[in-house]
Computed example of a mutant assay.
Amino acid sequence: MSEQWVTARIKQKGDSKCIPWRNLRDLIMVHPDVKKRADIFALSIYGLVVFPKALGHVDEAVSDLFDRLDKGVTPVSAILAETFRSLNACRRAGEGRFIGCAQLLLVWFHSHFWKVEKVSYRVFSENYSPLKELVATPRRDDITKEKWMAILQNLHKDDVEWRASWTVPDEILYRCGDFDWVPLLGIWGAVGYTPLLVLRHYGSR
């Protein structure tokens, strides 16, 4: 996409500058380069699903991150940062809409909120993927919004597994300089993450 193409189509949505998905979709349909079509489609997935900000639009900050993926930059820390930022904002306000990848949050829910019998040795397999396992699991379509609210409001400590069954113990980064926390940089801001508290939840010393 040329700078002129973007400038002609960029829209102001709240505090963000975004490209409408319909413009990206039209470009995917007509672009002569097949690889670039796939790249634009992948950018759209990042903007609409992984880092959603405005409905039906891709934030320009997402394109900046996407541009760096070819250079080996991992999006994982940005996904964590934006997930924590959004959940904290909703908690502080006592209301609000979660802005993040709802599908990944659902994986976290299913990984931690229901204790089910799992084949533990599978996590050591090179081909094991918790995401693939969740996709292969029959979907629960019978959980209504009201039922989710009841589940979350009535959770007890013993109902939550603080460590996912597929987490293999490894070295953990828990300091940044002289601070006992790690700053996670997102695409719209940063949040402090304290792995030592997480370890305490795991029951580690």
Rank of each mutant, 00 (worst) to 15 (best):
S2G: 15
V6T: 13
A8G: 03
S16W: 08
C18T: 08
W21M: 05
W21Y: 11
R22K: 13
L24P: 01
D26C: 05
M29Y: 13
V30F: 04
D33F: 03
R37W: 02
D39F: 02
A42V: 10
I45V: 12
Y46K: 12
G47L: 01
F51E: 04
H57A: 05
A61I: 03
D64I: 12
D64Y: 07
L65Y: 00
D67W: 06
K71P: 02
K71H: 11
K71Y: 06
V73W: 01
P75K: 11
V76N: 04
L80E: 13
E82L: 02
A89M: 12
A89Y: 07
E95N: 15
E95W: 08
R97T: 15
C101S: 09
L105W: 00
L105V: 04
L106N: 09
V107M: 04
W114M: 01
K115W: 06
K118G: 03
Y121R: 10
R122C: 03
V123Y: 02
F124V: 08
E126Y: 05
E126M: 07
S129C: 09
L134R: 09
V135Q: 07
V135E: 09
I143R: 03
I143S: 02
K145E: 12
E146Y: 07
M149K: 13
A150E: 13
I151P: 00
I151N: 01
Q153R: 15
N154G: 13
H156I: 04
K157V: 10
D159E: 10
S165A: 15
S165D: 15
S165W: 14
W166R: 11
V168M: 11
E171F: 09
I172E: 12
L173D: 08
Y174C: 03
R175E: 09
D180R: 10
V182M: 10
V182W: 08
V182P: 00
V182L: 10
P183N: 12
G186N: 07
A190M: 10
P195S: 09
V198E: 14
R200P: 00
R200K: 13
R205D: 11
